[in-house]
């Protein structure tokens, strides 16, 4: 009896097991396939391994954030891809991730592949010391772009960054010049702790303290338009009066404006509420041009030409005089903006 039963039981057991293993395999393949399509994998645009010094191409490894993150990032990535081509003498490989650890392992891979230059826009400021030391030992030159990191200056040759604090200061100085008489500000913040949030919030906080401006609401909306809409709505619902919306990016300014429109509060030039945004998305500059917004601050995504200059200098054994290059960034006022500005600076 038992001897007859046992094998069938076992048969069933292995069948189940086999099914489970199959299921696991299939899902693993699916996962890898799908994620692979979506990004997060390295892609090489230039030739293959042999392309190094022999072919006269300069090998660069570029580590960037996910291009889907924002309009800024999309423009930044497109700019990089346009600059680092074979025609311009580069053999470029790209790696994308919003996670620091993935970026660091990509950097290690690039160093092992023997790239000449490593270009990094770090997801997070901390944790880069070891890998940068490895790069130095391997003779790889490191150039930081867009974002700085907490590491010794000797570990990289140059950094090309946006000064978020300066962007904020340009904006609040503009706001001060408007002489509104009374300042009741709704301040909508980005993701807390990000460089853009810290810089832009810092500038407003200092000015508000110095000038005695009243910040009626200061809340993080995590770059999200709908959250900004809800926050603005909550101020309107509470019946608090305000005359300035200082949103730390364009999306959030758009969300806030949607709440104002629903409540019939006029905004923009000759309106009751001054609208301020950042990042100069093309559509945002068009809003400024149309007078529905008052101000939009630039955050320059085009670092590729600066990097190209530095690499050329290094290749010609010239000295790099400036370690940190802060890019010039503008603020656009509804009173002075032109269609040309929209076309030139819109991203």
């Amino acid at each position: 009896m038992f001897s007859e039963k046992d094998p069938t039981i076992e048969k069933g057991g292995t069948k189940m097991k086999r099914k489970k293993i199959l299921a696991l395999l299939v899902s693993a393949v699916l996962a890898v396939g799908v994620i692979g399509c979506g990004g997060g994998e390295k892609e090489s645009t230039g030739g293959n391994e042999s392309g190094g010094d022999e072919g006269g191409l300069i090998k660069v490894g570029i580590i960037n954030n996910d291009p889907n993150e924002s309009g800024y990032r999309t423009a930044n990535d497109a700019d990089m891809k346009e600059m680092f081509t074979e025609e311009n003498g580069y053999d470029a490989s790209f790696a994308y991730s919003l996670k620091n650890d993935e970026q660091i392992s990509a950097a290690q891979q690039f160093i092992q592949d023997g790239v000449d230059y490593l270009l990094i826009s770090a997801a997070d400021t901390a944790g880069w010391d070891t890998v940068l030391q490895d790069a130095q030992n391997a003779g790889t030159q490191v150039i930081l772009f867009d974002r700085t990191i907490d590491a010794d200056e000797s570990l990289y040759v140059a950094s090309i960054v946006s000064d978020m604090k300066a962007e904020g200061e340009t904006a609040v100085n503009w706001l001060k010049e408007q002489n509104l008489g009374e300042y009741n500000i709704i301040h909508i913040q980005g993701v807390m702790g990000s460089a853009a949030q810290v810089g832009r919030t810092g500038a407003l906080d200092e000015m508000a303290k110095a000038e005695g401006w009243n910040i009626v609401k200061q809340q993080a909306a995590d770059w999200n338009a709908e959250t900004a809409q809800q926050i603005t709505q909550s101020v309107i619902d509470a019946g608090t009066s305000f005359n300035v919306i200082y949103a730390e990016n364009d999306d959030m300014a758009r969300g806030a404006v949607a709440a104002l429109d629903a409540a019939n509060i006029s905004h923009g030039v000759d309106g009751d509420v001054v609208i301020m945004g950042f990042d100069t998305n093309k559509w945002a500059l068009e809003e400024v041009l149309a007078g529905r917004w008052n101000y939009d601050g630039q955050c320059n995504p085009y670092q590729a030409s600066y990097i190209h200059d530095i690499i050329e200098k290094l290749e010609n054994s010239e000295e790099i005089t400036e370690k940190t290059i802060v890019m010039e960034e503008k603020g656009f006022d509804a009173a002075t903006i032109t269609q040309e500005d929209v076309d030139t600076y819109g991203i």
Partner: peptide, 27 residues
């Protein structure tokens, strides 16, 4: 069919979905 825990099964789309969304409009 594959008897994967729903949270694990949907983790795939959770990870890739936003990239697919971006791809639909070519970023």
């Amino acid at each position: 069919f594959f008897r994967i825990q729903p949270m694990v099964a949907t983790l795939i789309l959770y990870t890739a979905g936003r990239n697919i969304a971006a791809w639909i409009n070519q970023n």
